[in-house]
Design a protein around this nucleic acid. Structure first.
Lengths: 243, 243
DNA sequence: GAGGCGCAGATTGCATGCAAGAAACTGCAG
DNA sequence: CTGCAGTTTCTTGCATGCAATCTGCGCCTC
């Protein structure tokens, strides 16, 4: 993808996630081109890219529509990501990880503890937590050294609210979020413990449950949040169909 | 995708899998357009599609190259597909399957037994076996009713020699193939037995091992076959790098 | 003789134009 | 007033053309 195309695709993706187009809304090339201030060709190519990412549905000779996601689809996607990550940590644990790799992973735990100590209050701390979480998950995938897993996880993470960084969503429920974060951190600790001890099956089980809880939280928080706080600009929320 | 584009993409994919272009070979739009007898635009779009499928690598301003696949990548992809299928059968088993769905699956077993009885000799019987195998695997995925799994499996199955129908590859080793087929059939039987008994964990374990053996066979047969019989037109073999 | 520079050919990236197909409108008949 | 057919308008799908970029080669310099 060339630079211009990449920019256009990114802008369109952002616009869709931000809810600039309603779910099921038909998207005309011209309208997109004018919104993005690009030519019809670039708009067309960007739409084609987002179609392959799963954000748009294309009907031959009739252009594209914005895909609406059900709660089930989102929860399913998170569980599948969890299963893939479980496989990844199993592979890492079974193969064994040298000290440098392990300490790199553990540095994420240290940062998490620091953030927890400060209470994870405020938007900045939340962002830091999200980055920490994403970094840890990415590093585990990378350590697994399995391209098929990496590709599949990246694909799933393109869906709204299905990526590891979508925990931002769950951090707005201030009441439960402290508990959720501690619980999540505990999972991460035991995960790395299992990896270090080369307990592949245990590591996989922890990861699977980690994802399962994440899917549950996402589902629950979405059902609560999406009508009231979606307007606040939580990315992707407007694509969710609550039925 | 429009009709013409789909045709062009299919033709190019076939050409690549058939080895019309060598791995790492640079692919010029003009050359592709002339080969496919289409305009440069369609060639370009088809290349872009295959890039997203993973058959081509694109470098900005420098066009595309045919991707070369290592034995590890192929074996990894099969194992990941197996893990996803394991999750699928676990879900099916845990949720339980009504009689009609179950008997639909079992009809594949009946066909397999018929084919085994005839010895699975000849190209036609092999094709029938491949179709049976693919049908069974597809039906299990479908029964899981999980879009994320279906999408991920479809994506992986686009890679050469990673799909369920790539067992065609293993059927050319006449000596071992009878045993392999019986063993595979036995897996399928126990798989459906576990599903019927709602033994999710058992079903998943069987599927995982089924895939693991499949990955091993593929790896072994490829290492043997690809230099001698690749020329015979086994699709995708020419994309494999043996080092 | 080796290495850097610049120019010409080749190749990609993007814009515009045109034709085929779908949607919408109008007019008419029932 | 409603349903339907013909026509018009709009939208997409594809081809072609042009500009920007890259590649390879020859030349010059050191």
């Amino acid at each position: 993808m060339s630079l211009q195309l990449e920019a256009a695709t990114g802008a369109l993706r952002q616009a869709i996630l931000d809810g600039a187009f309603a779910p099921d809304e038909r998207l005309r090339e011209m309208a997109v081109a004018e919104t993005l201030r690009v030519s019809r060709t670039l708009a067309r190519l960007a739409m084609s890219a987002l179609e392959k990412e799963g954000l748009l549905l294309r009907e031959p000779n009739r252009g594209s529509r914005v895909k609406a996601f059900s709660l089930k689809e989102i929860a399913d996607a998170i569980e599948v990501r969890g299963e893939l990550e479980a496989m990844a940590v199993r592979l890492v644990a079974e193969r064994g990880l040298q000290a440098p790799g392990l300490s790199r992973l553990q540095s994420f735990l240290a940062e998490a503890e620091q953030l927890l100590g400060q209470g994870v209050a405020g938007a900045e701390a939340r962002q830091a937590w999200v980055a920490m979480n994403q970094g840890l998950h990415d590093s585990l995938i990378e350590a697994a050294d399995n391209r098929a897993i990496a590709v599949a996880v990246r694909q799933i993470s393109l869906l709204p609210l299905a990526s590891a960084s979508a925990i931002i969503f769950d951090l707005f429920d201030a009441a439960g979020s402290a508990d959720q974060l501690r619980r999540s951190h505990d999972d991460h600790c035991r995960l790395l413990d299992a990896v270090a001890a080369r307990q592949g099956s245990r590591a996989a089980a922890i990861m699977r449950e980690h994802a399962f809880r994440s899917a549950e939280n996402r589902r629950k928080n979405l059902a609560n949040v999406s009508n009231l706080a979606a307007a606040e600009g939580l990315p992707g929320a407007r694509l969710v169909r609550l039925d």
